[in-house]
Design a protein around this nucleic acid. Structure first.
Lengths: 243, 243
DNA sequence: CGGTTTTTTGATCTCTATCAACTATTGTGG
DNA sequence: CCACAATAGTTGATAGAGATCAAAAAACCG
């Protein structure tokens, strides 16, 4: 299963044996889900590991009165339910932001894999670590950065995460998020997000048009966002692959 | 090693063999650290698993201009660096909030343990899952709850986490946090936190005096906080107040 | 095209930050 | 045990960031 292989190698070098073991997994056709659909809800028992192959999704939590917070973005190559074994019960929901396709890896196959090659469990753990580190950076973002800095930081995270697995090095990337999505991710209202976005544009830092993000001044953007990419673990044992 | 055993059993039942394996770990005297001292800094390579035995600590991140956000609380029985194997490089810092004592479990011993009893890795993973779920709940807290709701929620989390491992069922518990700590955890200034705390007191919901937290009206508190303890994975002995 | 979704604008209000004291509490050494 | 210093908690006044409400313009889509 090629998608799993390249995803696991993103944060961890695998041995030939480990790769071979992963190669024995039989490839099933991916599940397709239309945009805006919730694929996993709070309280569900996931029962399998899901790997996002195409499209963007998000983790989110709702408050009883309707307020919604996006607590994480899933980009191609990310796992829906981080960690092995799969969690008992979802504490949050996952929804497609664009049309998506994901692979489902049955738990039995995974158990066999990990039994044969225990190092594979480490590769999963590495993913979970990065996921947790991203959560913590978002906590800092929501707790201590203002809307302007927050949005700048989010754009840089997206840019860096996308570039880390295959995109080329130009100063733009996909970003199919609506301003509403961005507002839910940064914890502000969509009205305020709109104004913040205009300010970023006016300052010549970032522009977002037709689902594409343009970094106009990386250095100044990184400075106002106080962006330190270490938490994303790019660079170390990262394997670049073209998709 | 008794501390490790009871900590792992908090979220996962262990087999007699697994317990026996853990029993073979030799008990070293715990490391003691005075209050307010940073024990692990961003960028450090932890190189071992640390288990908090006594006292409270926190994970935090700083911004270059001095703003600080507490991104997690460590209570007795919690691991400093969640996940197995230990993370490469700390993306955040850990500091003692009170005088603390922690156990250090050498990586070799842990590797042996997991090799002998693979189920033990699952117990660690369970811890990591709960840790991640707490992060996500905090993201919702910072992103979508106001100061009043946030503080109410934090108190309920503390109360629930402490009660879940041994405290009796009276409506009070330890809480050695200063208002400054609470402000850093809830993402507000200490002045505003002070006023918010007074409001909680005035409303007859919570009181905090001489390092002790008194829950004056659990039901109303849970309601204003929109507290749903599921994310903490405590058994169903905990009441649920979703709405 | 017409209808839906997304983005934008303006006015107003509320929550939280900031600054600058001041008081209470805790802790320490003589 | 007191005296004093340091820490922690409290108060008031004011400024600013972001929320809210309502509606218009623009973009998207079948």
């Amino acid at each position: 299963m090629k998608a799993l292989l390249s995803s696991l190698e993103r944060h961890c070098r695998l041995s030939p044996e480990e790769r071979a073991a992963i190669g024995t997994l039989r490839e099933a056709p991916p599940v397709r889900v239309p945009a805006r659909q919730t694929t996993l809800s709070e309280g569900d028992k996931p029962g399998a590991v899901r790997l996002l192959a195409q499209g963007w999704a998000c983790r989110f939590k709702d408050l009883p009165d309707g307020r919604r917070q996006i607590v994480g973005l899933l980009l191609p190559g990310d796992f829906f339910d981080p960690g092995l074994p799969p969690m008992q019960e979802m504490d949050h929901s996952v929804a497609a932001l664009t049309p998506i396709a994901y692979h489902t890896i049955p738990p039995e196959a995974l158990e066999r894999l990990v039994r044969e090659e225990p190092g594979i469990a480490d590769a999963f753990a590495r993913h979970a670590h990065v996921g947790a580190a991203i959560h913590r950076e978002w906590l800092l973002n929501l707790g201590r950065r203002n809307a302007f800095e927050r949005l700048a930081h989010l754009f840089l995270e997206i840019f860096t995460r996308l570039r880390s697995h295959g995109d080329d090095c130009e100063m733009e990337c996909d970003c199919p998020l609506t301003q509403n999505d961005l507002a839910d991710a940064t914890g502000v209202t969509s009205v305020h997000l709109n104004r913040t976005m205009q300010e970023l544009r006016r300052e010549g830092l970032v522009e977002l048009k037709s689902k594409r993000l343009f970094i106009r001044d990386y250095d100044r953007l990184a400075q106002v966002a106080m962006f330190n990419p270490n938490y994303l673990q790019v660079g170390h044992e990262t394997r670049i692959f073209a998709q």
